Amino acid sequence: MLHHLTNLLMSKEILLIPILILILLEVKHRIRPISPLKLHFHSWKLTRINRDLIIRGLLEIANPHKYMEVMVPEFKISPTLLSNNKLDGIRVRSNVVLNEASKETHRKDSYWTNNIVKGHKAAQVELEMTMTTINNYNISSLWIEIYWVNYGPFGYLCRREGVLLPLSHPPLTLSKQAYWHKDENFQTLPVRTHLLGPLDDPSSVIQYYAGHLLEPGDIIAIGETPLAIMQGRFHHPTMVQVSGMARTLCRFFHPTSSLATAVGLQTLIDIVGPSRVILAWILGITAKILGIRGVFYRLAGNQARLIDDLTGTTPPYDQTLVLGPRHSQRICDQLSREFNISIAVVDVNDLGKVKILAQSRLYNDTILRRALKSNPAGNANEQTPLVLIRPILNCNS
């Protein structure tokens, strides 16, 4: 009897070991050293003087932490023009100024003075770029990469972020000139826009590019990746601190998966935590041996399917990881009330798979799935984040 009781206690202790390991992994993940600083993009203004286009912007370095003070010893920008044409003969000059309240610390040159951002405080940064052209170039956007350093209790962190500033807009699709893809039950119209970025919002984009086309009963499908980009949910791989766990487990995913790289999988770990990922991985491997696929993605959460690794999106975001959007249902409801039509956030690929992340006022999603099965928006550089779907009356859908 005593021997049986001893064996039982030992078996319970053995079971506790993996639980303790998962708890330790989760605690280590939660208390890992990270910088609290956030970069927010504010007002931008474009002014043309003769052959010069002057672009002025305001950034805010915010510190939401209550106590921690963080230094910013370096802050540089690298502007890149995006166009379908050659850009010979264009010169871009840039300047970065810390907008200090004290005149004593303000410098007239472009030297960046080390700045301390205290807890619950923010520092403002003024950017100015002057683009000099010889001819009239068709330049679509300006991609501004920001290289900056955070220094504090977490160490010395080099960060790399970016913002896209549209310099021109494609012509609007007029009702009489619109080329609809027709089916017996519906017709679809991919809506072309400028390259989207964190300075855009879904409501303004829909209003500008599709507002004049909308009719009662229409459906607007928004791509989940463009929506996430407008929310600023993308980051450069250098922003991710890869763990040994990510380097090991990523090798077991299909090579085409966005989780097949250490940075891609670490991005998921940073979102949902290491314990959930490792449990989903163990159960997923077990289920796969038994012939059941997709268990990992169901257990690891929606972001496991929505993360796009490098090259998964349109330039310049092809060099970043793009996450899935936030608050998709709330956005659908808000846009549906604003435009009085049905709104859906979707994830579509060229294989005919249609995933509806959220929908509002859509009582029957059969037409939506049929209309998007051929992926009318495309997966290349079409710049068609919106698809307008118009059901045909008196149809059996």
Rank of each mutant, 00 (worst) to 15 (best):
R192N: 09
N85R: 09
K118N: 13
N375K: 07
S203Q: 14
P166N: 06
S141F: 00
A62F: 02
I23W: 13
V97E: 09
C158W: 07
E13S: 08
Q231T: 14
K176H: 15
V191Y: 01
P166F: 03
N99R: 07
N135S: 14
S43P: 06
T238L: 15
G232F: 06
R91G: 03
P170I: 01
L98Q: 02
T105G: 13
G232N: 03
M68F: 05
K28Y: 08
R326V: 05
T225K: 05
A262H: 02
E126D: 08
L20D: 05
H212G: 11
L335M: 08
S204N: 15
K12R: 14
L172G: 04
R91W: 04
D365H: 07
T256E: 11
G284M: 08
K38E: 14
V205G: 04
I116E: 04
A287D: 09
L164E: 01
A178P: 12
S374D: 12
G217T: 12
A123Q: 10
S140M: 06
E145K: 10
S203A: 14
P33A: 15
L172I: 09
L9M: 13
A287C: 06
T286H: 04
Q266G: 01
S257W: 00
S204D: 11
R32G: 09
L39I: 12
H40R: 14
Y297G: 08
K108I: 03
M230E: 05
I331G: 00
E184H: 13
A304T: 04
S175E: 15
N85C: 06
G232T: 03
T320F: 11
R326S: 09
I278W: 02
G155Y: 15
N114S: 11
I34P: 02
N99A: 07
L335P: 02
R390G: 01
V70W: 00
D88L: 11
P216L: 11
R159H: 10
N115A: 04
